[in-house]
C-alpha cells in the first residue's frame, strides 16, 4: 500500500479542523502511519483553508502537492475548483454544493463561476457533488456539514463503519455526539 492522500478544503470557520482530526483518529486506530497538516491563524478567518491528511505504512512529507490527492473533500463548490490541480489523475472530488461568496464576489470585483460542478466533471475529474447542508440541518445544525461530508467520504474508503463511529466518539465533545453520528449516517446513506 502506498501513501494515500486526502485533502479537506473549505472556508475558514466551516469546521475542517474537526473533520481532519476525526479522520486522523480513525486512521490511527487502524494502525496506520498518519500525518495531518493544517494552517491556523490569519488564513482561518473566512479565507480558503486546506488540511492535508496522509496515511500508509510510512508517511514522509506532511503536505500533499499538485497532482497527488486521491480524494479532495470540499466544503464549498468554489474551493473544489480552486484545489482541482491537486487531484491525482484518477482521484475523486467529494464536494458540498453549498455556495459561500468570497469577498471579491461580495464587493463585485469578481464573479462567482456558474455551473461549477459540471465544469469540474468536464475537466475529467471524478466528482461526487451533493448538498451537505440540508442533511446537516436535518441532523441538528448547519455546522455539521463537516461530518456529513466525512460520512460521504467514508463510502469510498475501506474502513468499517464502526471504526468511523469510534473515531467520532473520540473527537467530538460528548454533548454533540448524537448529532454528529446522525450527520455522519446521513452523509454515508
Amino acid at each position: 500500500m502506498n501513501t494515500k492522500n486526502i485533502m479537506i478544503v473549505g472556508v475558514g470557520g466551516q469546521g475542517s479542523l474537526l473533520a481532519s482530526k476525526a479522520l486522523g483518529c480513525l486512521l490511527l486506530s487502524e494502525g496506520l502511519d498518519v500525518k495531518v497538516s493544517e494552517v491556523h491563524g490569519m488564513s482561518q478567518r473566512g479565507g480558503s483553508v486546506v488540511t492535508y491528511v496522509r496515511y500508509g505504512p510510512s508517511v514522509a512529507s506532511p503536505v500533499i502537492d499538485v497532482g497527488q490527492a486521491d480524494y479532495i473533500v470540499s466544503f464549498e463548490l468554489l474551493e473544489a475548483a480552486r484545489w482541482l490541480g491537486y487531484l491525482a489523475p484518477d482521484g475523486l472530488i467529494v464536494t458540498n454544493t453549498q455556495r459561500i461568496d468570497p469577498m471579491p464576489v461580495i464587493t463585485g470585483a469578481a464573479g462567482y463561476p456558474s455551473e461549477l460542478a459540471a465544469k469540474l466533471a468536464s475537466s475529467g475529474a471524478k466528482v461526487d457533488a451533493f448538498d451537505a447542508l440540508a442533511p446537516a440541518e436535518r441532523a441538528g445544525s448547519s455546522k455539521a456539514v463537516n461530518i456529513v461530508l466525512l460520512g460521504r467520504l467514508s463510502k469510498y474508503l475501506e474502513f468499517a463503519e464502526t471504526a468511523w463511529y469510534g473515531a467520532l466518539d473520540q473527537c467530538v465533545p460528548a454533548r454533540f455526539i448524537d448529532m454528529n453520528r446522525e450527520a455522519f449516517r446521513l452523509g454515508r446513506a
Partner: peptide
C-alpha cells in the same frame, strides 16, 4: 477562480 482572502468575521 476568485480569490478567497481571509476577512473579518
Amino acid at each position: 477562480i476568485p480569490a478567497r482572502p481571509p476577512v473579518m468575521c
